[in-house]
Design a protein around this nucleic acid. Structure first.
Length: 418
RNA sequence: GGAGGGGUCGCAUAGUGGUCGAGUGCGCUCGCUUGGAAAGCGAGUAGGCCGCAAGGUCUCGAGGGUUCGAAUCCCUCCCUCUCCGCCA
């Protein structure tokens, strides 16, 4: 959620920033609602002050056992009017909130302006050559089939298309990757491991920004207003919703493994084969809550933490900074990490590392008490995959395939596969 | 799922229609005291909104209602505890 004060004071600036995010909307309605709200508040508060004073007098009269009926009658009218105005305020406030919740975050100044073609190359790592074969490289789809590690057919039978059934070494590899990543981030990078619910309520989904705009992308339960998490970002960031953290407890750094559930509505026909785009996948997620002045440094270190996973797996990757038009709803700045798959000859996004600044914190009223000012301030929240599993598996299969069609297990995973 | 008890200022509690945004204890902060500390004494110790400010206003789980007036009465929901049932 954007700061209403910012919108009030710099509407043109905000509109322009949103334009960069390829969102066109007018702030006029918001501004007029805001103005109306403040006007009514001022009006009603005068009346409330009057009423409070009158009530005090009535209380005093009653105590002295005197007749207060005259004063009571007088104050009745005021109360009536207050009720009316209060109702109006809550109507205006609700519309205002609804609108504010639908405005995306504004991009950081370093963000390239434009559509995804303007995404900026930051760096790459590793060699694009497969490690053990130089020709006739197979795609992960072919490899999955010949190896029998993953069965989309069984997944489809059990649930529907886009759900996978991992078998044998495939299932083993999944578990090994999860444990490897959790160990790396907890032991080497200083994150605290957490294990959240995979179902969350509407408030949580609103807090991180999935709702109200992206409801059709989420799986929702029929009998309760719960949603399957699309990412661990939702439960982990919301863990401190409505709290005032101590400054000395920042930065909070959490790592969580969860499955992620995405309807991928609107993406039919894209990457329908294999592991690239599925409705349920495993992911290890990094989440940080930090002081505003540190948040961009924390984003860089978060990115490095995620990159480290691919380096240790010896998988070639590149880092892009997303252009304004490619930024997600809540992000102010975002790096994507894409891993190279030499069989498919494609880059696959395995991590998005974002700084949301105070956008999510505002929505979930997540603050910290500043030692200097003694006042509560909004924290900055960040997250990034560290990393998403299925596409990492794609890269492992394609980079580590051997002539005989088997897969060499990356060194760093071997202890986890025994 | 059934029956009952609760949700008050960091924690523990008091408060059953008017001076209660709210007492007390603990904790914490500052000061006095001390060689230093403990004890003791004194002061302070939520957040939101409106306002240039002075100040005003709102919040006792959430939302609604009754009333001139609600922490206190009524309704709905959420959470929690105990017992019963079911169960990994």
């Amino acid at each position: 959620m954007l700061d209403l004060k910012l919108i009030r004071e710099n509407p043109e600036k905000v509109e322009k920033a949103l334009e960069a995010k390829l969102v066109t909307l007018s702030l006029d309605h918001i501004l007029s609602l805001d103005e109306a709200r403040r006007k009514i508040i001022q009006e009603v508060e005068v009346l409330k002050a009057e009423r409070n004073k009158a009530n005090e007098e009535i209380g005093a009269l009653k105590k002295e056992q005197k007749d207060a009926s005259k004063a009571i009658n007088q104050v009745k009218d005021i109360s009536e009017k207050i009720k009316e105005l209060d109702q109006k305020i809550s109507e205006v406030q609700n519309s205002l909130n609804d609108l504010l919740l639908q405005i995306p975050n504004i991009p950081h100044e370093s963000t390239p302006i434009g559509d995804p073609s303007k995404n900026k190359f930051i760096r790459d790592w590793g060699s694009p050559e497969a490690k053990y074969v130089s020709k006739n490289l197979k795609t992960h789809v072919e490899l999955c089939e010949s190896l029998g590690w993953v069965s989309p057919t069984i997944g489809a039978k059990l649930t529907g298309s886009g759900f996978l059934f991992y078998k044998g070494m495939g299932a083993r590899l999944e578990r090994a990757l999860i444990n490897f990543m959790l160990d790396l981030h907890t032991k080497k990078h200083g994150y605290e491991e957490v294990s959240p619910p995979f179902l969350v309520n509407r408030a949580s989904m609103t807090g991180t920004g999935q709702l109200p705009k992206l409801e059709e992308d989420m799986y929702r339960l029929r009998d309760e207003d719960f949603f399957l998490i699309p990412t661990a970002e939702v439960p982990v960031t919301n863990a401190h919703r409505e709290e005032i953290l101590k400054e000395e407890d920042l930065a909070k750094k959490y790592v969580a493994y969860t499955p992620c559930f995405r309807r991928e509505a609107g993406s039919y026909g894209k990457d329908t084969k294999g592991l690239a785009r599925i409705h349920q996948f495993d992911k290890v997620e990094l989440v940080k809550m930090v002081k505003p002045e540190n948040s961009y440094d924390e984003l860089e270190s978060l990115l490095l933490n995620a990159e480290k996973v691919l380096q240790l797996l010896e998988l070639p990757y590149r880092v892009l900074q997303l252009a304004s038009g490619d930024l997600s709803f809540a992000a102010a700045k975002c790096y994507d990490i894409e891993v190279w798959a030499p069989g498919s000859k494609m880059w696959f996004e395995v991590s998005s590392c974002s700084n949301f600044e105070d956008f999510q914190a505002r929505r979930m009223n997540l603050r910290y008490r500043s030692i200097q000012s003694g006042k509560p301030e909004f924290v900055h929240t960040l997250n990034g995959s560290g990393v998403a599993l299925p596409r990492t598996v794609i890269a492992i299969l394609e980079n580590y395939q051997k002539e005989d069609g088997t897969i060499e297990i990356p060194k760093v995973l071997k202890p986890y596969m025994q």
